[in-house]
Design a protein around this nucleic acid. Structure first.
Lengths: 228, 228
DNA sequence: TCCTAACCGGACCGCGGTCCAGTTTTGTTC
DNA sequence: GAACAAAACTGGACCGCGGTCCGGTTAGGA
């Protein structure tokens, strides 16, 4: 398990320290997070570059589906084992391909100019963050999807659609002026089994906290509760 | 591609028609949706039952990972091709295993007693829906996760965590009283590449609508906008 | 009884992922 | 600078599983 050099949380050495910064802890975390690609043996580094280049070429010429671990290895004149040693698995390779744009995006909201970067009021920054993220995803959709296997099917499964439909209907009754279909997707996101698993099993949160968060979310979205 | 009998939107013949009902269209859609399992040849139906039983036994005895298509076929004394013909693919098989509880849940919120079923005010029903859904998922987590491959990794990937962290921080500034970590997950859900793909490519929504929905969501959650 | 359509099973394929024997690089010692 | 040892990297054989295919079989209607 290597997961070589995905990303780093900060760009280079951070130019002027008197700029506003949100996440001082990331400045230490950053180097630790990327501490897997730095000291590569010369041949390893060369092969890594060749693999990334070959993968990018495959994506461009024949689409993300053609990015087979074997194909990439062959195109880079390298053994299959090398690809896995370097990138861990297919997702790791695809993620590494996205790394460049990822870093740019992170730099933009961590240390860039407002409204995305520090300086603007938080709600304003949130709006900008969503816009930027949506645009970026729209650009690199193919890669992003390929990096997350089976992504296309999650929203098409019949059971999901029934629940989705139901929530949208309730929302139409509660907040007729909103875009209830999309809002329903958002709410459903909080009930996603994968998220529940992550929060309760991997992070150790009690189920009661998820329930409370759901109630609070409904309050906020419908404007029903005590808050604001 | 068969995707045999996942689910149906309604329980049996719907007892008393004067009960309140939310989704009259589902009453017609229901039979159409499940119209793949009804007229099975005798041997096919028998094999289907044996396969489901074998799969359930495997899950119980050796965990969801052990539910290999080959293993299920062998345990049911049936050829591998039969499993695929019946359930389409692995996800289809797992979904079929969840079908029973799915139907019960659907019946509960479509035609059951309030506050889950019709009769209560919509916001109240939404709250009940979330609670019920969370509990159900917690029970059948293993199967639900197995049915959605790779689910565990979606929230652990380093890039995702950086974004998540950032959004949580902005939320803490904007709405200090909320559970910002969970709220951040919710917001991020609307930026999920898989969702973007589904909405723009499969449903044909323009990106601008997603952007508007995001802005609206931020307004609702932070209480910033004009609404309420 | 016969015909046809549906079904069955297992051989087959491709890909993701593992493993290990052999090779190359790097650091050390003389 | 040469020789050596340890660590790191390499590549391709190998495995298991999801998914496809097709010749043979069987159920059900006429």
């Amino acid at each position: 398990m290597l997961y070589a050099g995905f990303m780093s949380a900060v760009p280079p050495p951070l130019p002027t320290p008197q700029e506003p910064v949100d996440h001082p802890e990331l400045l230490q975390l950053g180097p630790a997070l990327e501490a897997d690609e730095p000291c590569l043996r010369a041949d390893a580094a060369r092969n890594r570059a060749r693999l990334l280049e070959a993968a990018a070429r495959l994506v461009a010429e024949r689409g993300a589906d053609a990015v087979t671990m074997e194909a990439v290895a062959a195109a880079a004149c390298v053994g299959k084992g090398t690809v896995f040693r370097r990138f861990g698995d297919r997702t790791g390779l695809l993620t590494a391909l996205l790394d460049h744009s990822e870093r740019k995006f992170q730099a933009a909201f961590l240390t860039g100019p407002p409204p995305l970067g520090p300086g603007a009021p938080p709600a304003e920054r949130l709006r900008a963050f969503g816009r930027a993220s949506l645009r970026r995803s729209a650009d690199e959709l193919e890669l992003q999807l390929a990096a997350e296997p089976d992504a296309g099917r999650r929203f098409v499964a019949p059971p999901r659609r029934v629940l989705q439909h139901h929530v949208a209907m309730l929302l139409r009754q509660a907040v007729p002026e909103a875009d209830c279909e999309l809002l329903a997707h958002t709410l459903m996101g909080q009930l996603d089994p994968a998220l529940i698993h992550h929060l309760t099993r991997q992070c150790g949160l009690p189920l009661s906290r998820l329930e409370a968060a759901w109630t609070d979310l409904v309050d906020r979205v419908t404007g029903t509760g005590a808050g604001s």
